[in-house]
Design a protein around this nucleic acid. Structure first.
Length: 938
RNA sequence: GCGAGAGUGGCGGAAUUGGUAGACGCGCUAGAUUUAGGAUCUAGUAGGGUAACACCUGUGGGGGUUCGAGUCCCCCCUCUCGUACCA
């Protein structure tokens, strides 16, 4: 009796307990030690550049003391699979990892425990390194770096100096050394206007360089430097004792970290002129393969809008009010104006009768937090100033109000209000009984109750310029032209993006390479003075308080004079006491990975040109950095590009955001989150084992708890440690499980219970290759045609799947192939080798071990990825729908390669069709060359 | 409001360009093995219907294009994320 697959399987299962089983612990430690000892995945500094490169990068982690949970490695596993796959396809792969090690938590921990942040940081890095290594990730650890390394800080400071010593030349739209500008100014070729804007053409209001004193010159240069010190309204967070960037403040007006209140306050701080790059940062988004959501967030944040500046003459004053509008075509519909309450003109133009009311309103508004203002958008507040302005297009006198719906921080802090075509103005006008005048008619005649804010045909435009009948686009052009020719305004592009506040009152950050002279002189250090080290101190704590008016006190102010004071050429300077934000280090780490040991240069230009050609090929990380790291890094990269230090204008060609791992969490009756690991159901089963059963009751320490669902992490106490999973199932299982969960970009639930599925797969793989007695079940016989066909179909599927990062389907393909192998007594060598190669990127340890056991040649990690034999994977038969007079009569199955005549002959045999086909001419028409084609009987 | 994405079994999810919907896994049901539990193996598992087939209905809802729609087009509903008085 022949042994059927089922019988064979039953036979195997019934034998005694296997003596040689899948011992993942030993296998995994063995190979991880081997890779480490052999430095298997180290990419040499010089590689054969005739080969294709692949730079695959993870967003490097902050080394926190808590350690990783299973959500963290999701992206790391994905990039590791790609890295391993690309090595096997013959690419030079750069796959580095490092640590973003400056920042608040290390400092806070240091303050609480009195340990130097350097020590806690090093400890945390060591812990995290061990956790990462346990996952069998094929990083080139030789290139590992921490942003806190003095050798790294040096180049972060160096880049800051590049920014400080550059300006954006409006003629070329490129960062250019400021020395070039100075040289040109000295030769009288150019001027800097008093407004700080640089122009070759317009000398209006210019400061004459020759006639200016040093302070004026420096101030003028400061107005164009990409890094500059300025007194601006900043986000001051007394609770943290530091200022924060706009991107670090929530829309509730609190700090992203710690949730302390943040106040707007004028302070003198270091700024980076990211606004100079607003246009390019937006435009170049078109050239990168990023998720649409992230691009949209960046576009939104940059907030480019096209419009016009318009001047309104104040009645009875010599001053003008300047407004910004995106709808200059509605100028005739402006029936009043609104200034932001804190607008500087308010004091001058307010009439004596209105003064009390205006000042009272002002103090009310400034006392109100941002949040209160957003309670109900429809309710608008404001008061008239008593002043009037003149509409430039028709000379009409319209009242000037102040209201808090106009923000000082955008545009000019003043608007012309067109209630007929702007919902906010409409709400305001309705509330205060101000006139509404329609000046744009919709294209269609549909009348709606809503304000018409769309584009249409201009009307009611009697005045100094006539727009009636023009479409919105043309009307805008006409108005701008008229305004410009009468010097009453000009077309302008506005951005929501503000310059980047770049200093922090912290200890654990990069010191600025900047000195302050007694007379207010700012002196940038020479490159040779880098790195500027952090001073040794005992007390690194920030000065926090509840008082919004408390002055910022950088911890470095308490450093000894040895550090604080620097003497150069007999003059004593004070060091800059602020430090850089932790974003600084992450802005360029991907460049340093290319050449981490270089002491002479940021990165070797030739190596940079090779590895950064077209940008980083794959960058994987969380979406939370959309308008922080990802925007800052692009800005630095563009500046470095302009200055010739990098060869491609965008750092990250392809970006993928991994989803979050979610899990159930439990809260007791007092609303306190309890540790999910300790929660049991009514039968005493651990909650982690019985999820998806909504009718269960859960308890913690005898107390009833309610179930909820959310992001895995510390705050919900539902973290699962990868160490535990590796211990119980092995890291190959963990890797497969995390990838098997679903698409990488999607958020998905963690269910410890489901892990067994992929673990069973690996055990079956093992048993297919290794007999219970330890015998290797691979034969040198030729493979059967069907097995060969299956293995090539699997190659095809897995290759495509990995290429499009669809790891879950790749695993499914391997599971299917493995199930087919069960029925083989011995797997033909050619099939066995193919299978292990396909498995290698996903579950590298078991694949490598089996490769060695079957006597495979060399290291599997660098074996050539198998090619598909296309002739083996074609369909053998296709279905054909036979259509008669436009209706499908039947479907027939024919062999691939059958001739048209054969197909028609077959069709004739089909009863349904035959009588229609008899005696008629038959036309063969193939609609879709897929698995089903049609023949049409005319 | 605006912007982006998503709705498929009890659950996670498959289905390159329109071509046998539900791959693969979990769970569940039955059986084998086992002192028992666990583990392992076998079969089944969208819903309705049937002794079993046949058959019918099915990818949030409603229309449309097509020989053929989860996939393409139009309208609507729901959910998630981001953003918010940006003139």
């Amino acid at each position: 009796m022949p042994r059927t697959p089922a019988l064979l399987r039953a036979e195997r299962a019934s034998r005694a307990a296997p003596s040689v089983k899948y011992d993942f612990h030993n296998i995994e430690t063995k190979w991880q030690r081997h890779w480490e000892a052999e430095r298997t995945f180290a990419t040499p500094r010089q590689v054969d550049t005739s080969r294709e490169k692949f730079y695959v990068l993870d967003m490097f982690p902050y080394p926190s003391g808590i350690g990783l949970h299973v959500g963290h490695p999701l992206g790391y596993i994905a990039t590791d699979i790609i890295a391993r796959f690309k090595r096997m396809t013959g690419c030079n792969v750069l796959h580095p990892m490092g640590f973003d090690a400056f920042g608040l938590p290390a400092e806070q921990f240091a303050v609480e425990h009195g340990v130097h942040p350097r020590i806690t940081t090093e400890r945390n890095i060591a812990n995290m390194l061990a956790q990462l290594k346990r996952l069998g990730l094929s990083y080139d650890w030789d290139r590992a770096l921490a942003t806190t390394d003095p050798g790294y800080v040096r180049w972060t400071q160096w880049i800051f100096l590049q920014l400080y010593n550059s300006f954006l030349d409006p003629a070329t739209d490129k960062a250019t050394p400021i020395a070039d500008l100075i040289a040109e100014l000295e030769s009288g070729a150019r001027y800097i206007s008093s407004g700080g804007e640089l122009s070759r053409a317009s000398f209006e209001g210019a400061v004459d360089w020759d006639g200016a004193d040093t302070a004026t010159r420096n101030a003028a240069l400061s107005n164009v430097r990409l890094a500059y010190l300025a007194e601006v309204d900043v986000n001051w967070c007394p609770g943290l004792g530091t200022v924060l960037a706009n991107e670090e403040v929530t829309n509730e007006g609190r700090s992203e970290r710690g949730n302390f209140p943040v106040y707007r306050r004028p302070l003198k701080q270091w700024m980076l002129r990211i606004t100079a790059y607003a246009d390019r940062l937006e435009r170049d988004l078109a050239d990168v393969e990023w998720p649409e959501a992230i691009k949209a967030m960046q576009r939104n944040w940059i907030g480019r809008s096209r419009g016009a500046r318009v001047q309104f003459e104040l009645v009875g004053f010599s001053d003008v009010i300047e407004v910004y509008t995106t709808r200059p075509d509605t100028l005739f519909g402006a029936t009043y104006m609104v200034l932001a309450p804190e607008h500087p003109l308010v004091d001058q133009l307010v009439t004596p009768e209105q003064r009390d009311q205006v000042y009272q309103y002002r103090s009310e508004v400034s006392g109100r937090s941002e949040r209160d203002r957003m309670v109900d958008e429809k309710v608008k507040t404001g008061v008239p100033t008593g002043a009037f302005a003149r509409n430039p297009v028709n000379g009409e006198e319209i009242p000037v109000w102040i209201a808090d719906y106009v923000l000082m921080g955008y545009g000019t802090g003043a608007i012309m209000a067109v209630p007929a075509h702007d919902t906010r103005d409409f709400d305001f006008a309705t509330q205060f009984g101000l006139p509404i005048r329609e000046v744009v008619a919709p294209h269609d005649d549909v009348k709606s109750d809503e304000v018409f804010t769309g584009e249409g045909t201009a009307r009611n435009s009697a005045g100094n310029v006539v727009l009636d009948g023009l479409q919105t686009v043309d009307a805008k052009k006409a108005v701008i032209e008229w305004l410009e020719s009468h010097s009453l305004g000009r077309g302008e592009t506005q951005y929501k993006l503000r310059d980047w506040l770049f200093s922090r009152q912290r200890y654990w950050g990069e010191p600025f390479p900047i000195l302050h002279g007694e007379d207010g002189e700012i002196r940038a250090l020479d490159e040779s003075a880098l790195p500027v080290p952090l001073p040794e101190m005992d007390d690194f704590s920030p000065t926090a308080s509840d008082d919004p008016d408390a002055p910022p006190q950088p911890p470095l102010g308490r450093a000894s004079d040895d550090w604080k004071q620097v003497e150069i050429d007999g003059r004593v300077y004070q060091r800059e006491l602020n430090t850089m934000p932790n974003w600084a280090g992450s802005c360029w780490y991907y460049l340093r990975f290319i050449d981490p040991g270089n002491e002479a240069q940021l990165v070797d230009p030739e190596l940079e040109a090779y590895w950064m050609d077209g940008g980083i090929d794959l960058y994987v990380g969380g979406a939370e950095h959309a308008v922080l790291h990802l925007l800052y890094a692009r800005f630095w990269h563009k500046a470095l590009f302009d200055l010739g230090h990098v060869t491609h204008p965008e750092p990250f060609r392809r970006l993928v955001n991994q989803g979050m791992i979610q899990a159930y969490a439990y809260r007791n009756e007092r609303g306190i989150v309890v540790d999910s690991g300790q929660v049991v159901d009514q039968d005493g089963q651990p909650a982690t084992e019985v999820q998806d059963q909504p009718d269960r009751r859960y308890s913690f320490d005898g107390e009833r708890v309610s179930q909820e669902y959310g992001k895995m992490g510390k705050s919900l106490k539902n973290a699962v440690s990868p160490d535990d999973i590796c211990e119980e199932y092995g890291c190959d299982t963990l890797r497969l499980y995390e990838m098997y969960l679903g698409p990488i970009e999607q958020s998905k639930p963690w269910n410890t219970r489901d892990i067994i599925g992929v673990h069973r797969f690996l055990r079956r793989v093992w048993r297919n290759f290794v007999d219970e007695s330890g015998e290797i079940l691979v034969s040198d016989d030729e493979s059967s045609e069907s097995l060969l066909r299956l293995s090539h179909k699997t190659i095809d599927r897995v290759t495509n799947d990995i290429n499009r990062l669809s790891f879950n389907t790749a695993i499914a393909a391997l599971i299917e192939m493995n199930s087919a192998l069960v029925s083989e007594q011995r797997i033909p060598r050619v099939v066995a080798e193919t299978f292990l190669k396909l498995l290698a990127p996903l579950a590298p340890h078991i694949a490598e071990e089996l490769w060695a056991l079957i006597g495979g040649d060399g290291a599997l990690a660098f074996k050539e990825w198998p090619d598909v034999d296309a002739s083996l994977i074609k369909d053998e038969q296709i279905k054909i729908a036979v259509q008669v007079n436009g209706k499908v009569r039947s479907t027939i199955t024919v062999d691939v390669g059958a001739s048209g005549e054969e197909v028609i002959a077959l069709a004739r045999e089909e009863e349904n069709v035959a009588r229609h086909v008899e005696g008629k001419s038959v036309r063969r028409e193939i609609y879709v060359p897929g698995r089903i084609v049609n023949i049409v009987v005319a």
